[in-house]
């Protein structure tokens, strides 16, 4: 039972919407954090770390806001470290394992292109605070997309080996992209209240961007598959459990401690 705000959307639904955005950035940042010290060159370590830092910053702002709206005294850390898998609302694509550098770049590219379209539209959100967060995130995401697109092109149009590897990465990760644009009841409510964008429009814009880069990368756009993932509803792949185990270990072991 949750009060509705002036726009008719229940507070709990607005919180869920914010958590979808926050958790996607958080989980993706967590994945990128695993790369540090293991990238193909020092400079790529720095580039991936830069993206991780930006995504962490976004998730902190969004989580803090979600916690305030919720009004139960949960701050960014309580939300990040003490929720269970079913309460995490990131898109399933974000939690996929790093694999090799190609897998990581494909995952990053698909999400960067999605986040850029999303944040560009959220700048006009009726939720002023969300609009402000999005305005900052847009600038960062432009740079992330530049980095991941450039690498996708180098790998796709590099050597025969890199082309084969990254085409395979694309085939493997493409099925997770459907979830980004499949509107459920929450997405529809958020869109009609003017808080967030219409996902169909988002999909078209994303699709054009992706096609342009894939063409330059000489990569083949995979066919859509019918299976739909539901990470944004809390039903995840097997990977999230392990990821949260690492993420949450210290706080769950030392309950109530300050760090």
């Amino acid at each position: 039972m949750s009060a509705a705000g002036p726009d008719g959307v229940a507070i709990s639904d607005r919180v869920r919407h914010l958590l979808r955005l926050a958790d996607t950035s958080l989980v993706l940042a967590q994945r990128l954090g695993e790369w540090v010290g293991h990238a193909p060159a020092i400079e790529e370590d720095l580039g991936l770390a830069n993206t991780a830092l930006d995504l962490l910053g976004q998730s902190r702002l969004l989580l803090s806001y979600a916690g305030e709206l919720e009004g139960k005294g949960r701050g960014e850390d309580a939300l990040a470290f003490l929720r269970e898998e079913a309460d995490f609302l990131n898109v399933t694509l974000a939690e996929q394992p790093n694999g090799d550098f190609g897998d990581t770049i494909v995952r990053q590219f698909l999400i960067d292109a999605y986040q850029l379209e999303l944040y560009e539209r959220l700048v006009a959100s009726k939720d002023a605070r969300l609009a402000e967060i999005a305005a900052k995130a847009v600038k960062e995401t432009r740079y992330h997309l530049r980095f991941s697109s450039a690498w996708l092109v180098r790998l796709g149009d590099g050597t025969a080996e890199s082309h084969a590897r990254v085409q395979a990465s694309l085939e493997r990760l493409w099925p997770y992209s459907r979830e980004l644009f499949d509107a459920d009841e929450l997405d529809r409510q958020i869109a009609s209240a003017g808080i967030g964008p219409d996902l169909a429009t988002l999909h078209d814009a994303w699709s054009s961007r992706v096609d342009a880069v894939l063409a330059e990368a000489t990569l083949r756009r995979p066919a859509d598959t019918p299976y739909l993932w539901y990470g944004k509803q809390g039903r995840h792949s097997e990977h999230l459990g392990y990821l949260l185990t690492e993420l949450q270990y210290l706080q769950r072991t030392h309950l109530g401690a300050s760090w």
Binding site: G37, L46, S59, F81, L250
Partner: peptide, 29 residues
């Protein structure tokens, strides 16, 4: 970068995680 990078995924708060990533990034730099 390796001994410290070891704790990035397990840092106990989001702020500590950010600080540690920034530090290890500095070391790479």
């Amino acid at each position: 970068m390796l001994p410290e990078g070891n704790w990035i995924t397990r840092a106990p708060t989001l702020l500590r995680k950010s600080i540690l990533i920034a530090k290890v990034q500095d070391e790479g730099g």
